[in-house]
Amino acid sequence: MNPTRLPASLASMPAPVPPVQQSRTIHPVWVRITHWLNALAALTMMLSGWRIYNASPIFPSFSFPNGITLGGWLGGALQWHFAAMWLLVFNGIVYLLLNLASGRLVRKFLPLSPRALLRDFVSALRGKLSHDDLSHYNAVQKLAYLFVIVDLIVLVLSGLAIWKSVQFPLLRELMGGYDTARIVHFSAMSLMAGFLVVHLALVALVPRSLLAMLRGR
């Protein structure tokens, strides 16, 4: 018998199916927890901040509808705002430290080149940007996430310059004075609101990204 040929009974048997590999973890537990806590704190600060803004608007002709604000009145809004601020600060510090210590910050968000950003931005406009691998961020996502990290830091610093203007005179002056610090704070808040709108729109287009942030894979 030719050793290279199998008996007919064996040759007709189907090939063994390899075991299904478990889905790899995209977001570890600490990323998911800090992400949702940051989202809760940022949203609470934004809604309560709108009520605080209405009490002393920077632009007299513009105010936010009270129905989309949080706090009910100025004192209540301030309590919500400061409570969320501490959550954002401490949770944000934990998020940044763990990202740096694990190397995730460099691995996920760098490198980021203008050429890659332009290429992925054009692909996104054409609807040809792939989202098959959720563990990999394209250049547009990298820029957006780095931007919102910096924006939240500016929000906290400008908020401190407003809240503790006497205690932090150097910070107040770096912001251009108390009145300018209010404008910086409002602008950073507006940019964060814009980021949230775009972020939610992308989640709606790629719902698997929401599942990944909920269950990790």
Score class of each variant (00 low, 15 high):
5 R>K: 14
8 A>T: 13
9 S>R: 11
11 A>K: 09
12 S>Y: 05
21 Q>K: 15
23 S>D: 13
25 T>N: 03
27 H>V: 07
34 T>N: 01
34 T>H: 05
36 W>K: 01
44 T>M: 07
46 M>L: 15
48 S>H: 14
49 G>E: 06
50 W>E: 10
57 P>W: 02
59 F>V: 12
66 N>T: 12
66 N>Q: 09
69 T>S: 11
70 L>W: 03
72 G>I: 03
73 W>Q: 08
77 A>I: 03
79 Q>F: 10
79 Q>V: 12
79 Q>C: 00
80 W>K: 03
84 A>M: 06
90 F>P: 00
91 N>C: 10
93 I>V: 15
94 V>L: 14
95 Y>E: 00
98 L>T: 09
99 N>Y: 09
100 L>H: 00
101 A>F: 12
102 S>L: 02
103 G>V: 09
106 V>D: 00
109 F>Y: 15
110 L>C: 13
113 S>P: 07
115 R>C: 00
115 R>I: 11
119 R>T: 14
121 F>P: 06
122 V>E: 00
122 V>D: 00
124 A>R: 09
133 D>I: 08
138 N>D: 04
141 Q>R: 11
143 L>T: 11
145 Y>R: 10
149 I>L: 14
150 V>E: 01
156 V>N: 02
158 S>C: 04
158 S>W: 04
159 G>M: 03
159 G>F: 06
159 G>P: 04
162 I>H: 01
167 Q>A: 14
167 Q>W: 07
168 F>S: 07
169 P>S: 07
170 L>T: 15
173 E>L: 12
177 G>D: 07
178 Y>A: 05
178 Y>E: 05
185 H>W: 02
187 S>W: 05
188 A>F: 02
189 M>P: 01
191 L>S: 11
192 M>G: 13
192 M>E: 02
192 M>P: 00
192 M>H: 07
196 L>K: 00
197 V>F: 08
198 V>I: 15
199 H>G: 08
204 A>M: 10
209 S>W: 06
213 M>Y: 05
217 R>K: 15
